[in-house]
Computed example of a mutant assay.
Amino acid sequence: MSDTDSFIDEVTEEVRRDRLYGYLKRYGWIAAVMIIGIVGAAGFNEYRNAQAEAQAQALGDAMLGALAENEDDARADALTGVTADTPEGAAVLAFMTAGAQSQAGRVEAAIETLQPITQSTDVPLMYRQIATFKSLMLQSETQDAETRRQGFQAMAVPGVRLRLLAEEQLALIDIETGDTDAAVTRFQMILDDAEATPGLQRRALQAMVALGGAPEATETAGE
């Protein structure tokens, strides 16, 4: 390479460097803003996660403290005094409170505790379904069979995770109303369902035998 070519290359490199510095001076603030934004967003997410974790920890500690009470009435009262900062936390707290109220014999209070969760659009659908199921269970002594049947039928549909538990309750309502044949048919359906848990299948099998039914053989029944 000649001296002339070498000189041209050096000049070209200097021009490129000057252009780069010019671009940095003109547009470097954009990169700075992006970096600050990324770092700030990461910091905010860390803060938010830490805050959510602290709230969950505080709620858990408060519920454990309430459950440490020796008497059913005391546990129910203590849980009633606990508050939750998130819709999900409020749902879990309602389940715990309703359970304690039910054990203390306060069935109507337990149903009232669950009612807001059944209608809340701020909590996941699964939470609403659980609250509805628990509420229907608590109404076994106060609500007529047909009203409860309609409630469980609405849950005994594909796509609802509590579908088979709802079917079990429908079978029990069939027994309550004297329709043992319908109950046996439902229990057999539970035995045949691939999604039924071993515990649920055992209960269905035991109920069928108690009703004088003849369960058809299944691969998982009774396991």
Score class of each variant (00 low, 15 high):
Pro87Asn: 11
Ser102Leu: 06
Gly40Ser: 05
Gln101Asp: 00
Thr147Trp: 11
Ser135Ile: 06
Ser120Gln: 09
Asn70Tyr: 07
Ala32Arg: 07
Gln119Pro: 11
Ala76Leu: 03
Arg19Pro: 03
Gln57Glu: 12
Asn49Lys: 08
Val33Cys: 14
Ala58His: 02
Gln143Met: 13
Gln51Ile: 04
Ser135Gln: 10
Leu59Tyr: 00
Asp72Phe: 15
Ala50Trp: 02
Glu141Met: 03
Leu114Gln: 09
Lys134Leu: 15
Ala110Pro: 05
Ser102Thr: 06
Gly89Ala: 06
Leu20Pro: 05
Pro124His: 04
Leu138Met: 05
Val107Gln: 11
Val123Ala: 02
Phe95Gln: 02
Ala94Val: 00
Glu141Cys: 01
Glu141His: 04
Glu53Trp: 08
Ala42Trp: 10
Ala98Cys: 08
Leu20Glu: 15
Val82Asp: 02
Arg48Leu: 13
Ala74Tyr: 06
Ala74Asn: 06
Arg17Tyr: 13
Arg75Val: 10
Ala145Ile: 10
Arg19Asn: 08
Trp29His: 04
Val39Met: 05
Ala91Gln: 06
Ser140His: 08
Ala41Arg: 05
Lys134Glu: 15
Thr113Asp: 09
Gln129Gly: 13
Leu138Asp: 00
Arg17Asp: 14
Arg26Thr: 15
Arg16Pro: 07
Glu53Phe: 13
Ile36Arg: 01
Val39Ile: 08
Pro116Trp: 07
Asp85Glu: 12
Gln51Asp: 13
Gln115Trp: 02
Asp61Gly: 01
Ser102Phe: 02
Thr147Leu: 11
Ala131Glu: 13
Asp18Asn: 10
Pro124Ile: 05
Val15Met: 11
Ser102Ala: 14
Asp72Arg: 15
Ala91Leu: 10
Gly65Gln: 07
Leu64Ser: 15
Glu69Ile: 09
Val123Phe: 05
Asp9Met: 06
Asn45His: 13
Thr97Pro: 05
Leu125Cys: 08
Ala62Val: 10
Gly43Phe: 04
Pro87Val: 01
Ala74Met: 10
Ala42Leu: 09
Ile30Ser: 00
Gly37Cys: 12
Ala54Phe: 04
Pro87Ile: 01
Lys25Pro: 04
Ala98Phe: 03
Ala100Glu: 00
Tyr27Asn: 06
Ser140Asn: 07
Arg16Asp: 14
Met126Arg: 14
Thr147Met: 09
Ala84Pro: 02
Arg128Leu: 09
Asp144Val: 05
Val33Glu: 11
Thr83Leu: 06
Ala109Cys: 00
Arg19Lys: 11
Thr12Ala: 15
Val39Tyr: 04
Asn70Asp: 15
Tyr127Ile: 12
